[in-house]
């Protein structure tokens, strides 16, 4: 069991999946950090029962803020490598060793979802569009810029630490990777698209693109 690997799982009303995800993640690392982002259900209690370290946001701050809380805490606790994944059951914790293997040769590893036809058209189109904008603005080519399954080193985290509180976090991470010229790699992951879209809307996609343009204009050297 790798003790310097911390798995961070931001969760908001995830009572359906959280226990199972933690149990599966525990087979990959002993350090499972769940950030309960102001859930109304018993996500926290279930996560504690499953023996994860639970950080509770007293109000819902958004995925970006929850991830940052988890990553900051992990760094304080001596994490050398951080893995972030979603709590909605779409990511397989069994993929973590593949991320860690790829992380040997990179500062950050992106997990790109293999599409299996179940993704709604509007999200397929939105994702492709964001991928293209990302390539044009930051010169980083990824098949899936919006996947939340990623791994990075502690040093990389200090360089890419984001401001976004919301779903723009994934895009901002990439923008910061480009800005700091970090080494990145991409691995393909299988996902289940069951209730992936309960949190994101078309408007979120528009905001993400506008934010990307803003970061390009204000942060690029």
């Amino acid at each position: 069991m790798k003790n310097d690997v911390f798995v961070i799982i931001p969760a908001h009303n995830e009572k359906r999946h959280i226990s199972k995800i933690i149990r599966r993640a525990k087979r990959q690392s002993s350090n499972i950090i769940v950030v309960d982002d102001g859930s109304d259900d018993n996500t926290s209690e279930l996560a504690e029962k499953a023996e994860a370290v639970v950080l509770r946001h007293i109000v819902n701050m958004g995925k970006g803020a929850a991830l940052k809380t988890g990553c900051d805490y992990s760094i304080k606790k001596g994490a050398r490598r951080l893995v972030v994944l979603d709590a909605d059951g779409q990511h397989k914790p069994e993929d973590i060793p593949r991320f860690l293997e790829a992380l040997e040769k990179a500062d950050i590893v992106f997990g790109s979802r293999v599409r299996r036809g179940k993704m709604p058209f509007v999200f397929k189109f939105g994702n492709s569009f964001i991928n293209k904008v990302n390539d044009i603005l930051f010169g980083i080519r990824l098949k899936d810029t919006q996947s939340g399954f990623r791994a990075f080193t502690a040093d990389a985290y200090k360089k890419i630490r984001w401001d976004s509180q919301s779903y723009s976090v994934e895009a901002e991470m990439i923008a910061n990777v480009g800005r700091k010229n970090l080494k990145y790699s991409e691995i393909f992951i299988k996902t289940i698209y069951s209730d992936r879209y309960k949190g994101t809307t078309v408007l979120d996609g528009v905001k993400i693109v506008l934010n990307m343009v803003w970061w390009r204009l204000t942060r690029w050297h």
């Binding site: 370290v53 639970v54 950080l55 007293i58 109000v59 701050m61």
Partner: peptide
């Protein structure tokens, strides 16, 4: 204010641990 709120929420989360 958004940043301050985020910091407060984070500090409370750390303290609860």
């Amino acid at each position: 204010n958004g940043r301050k709120l985020e910091e407060i929420v984070r500090k409370i989360a750390f303290r609860s641990i």
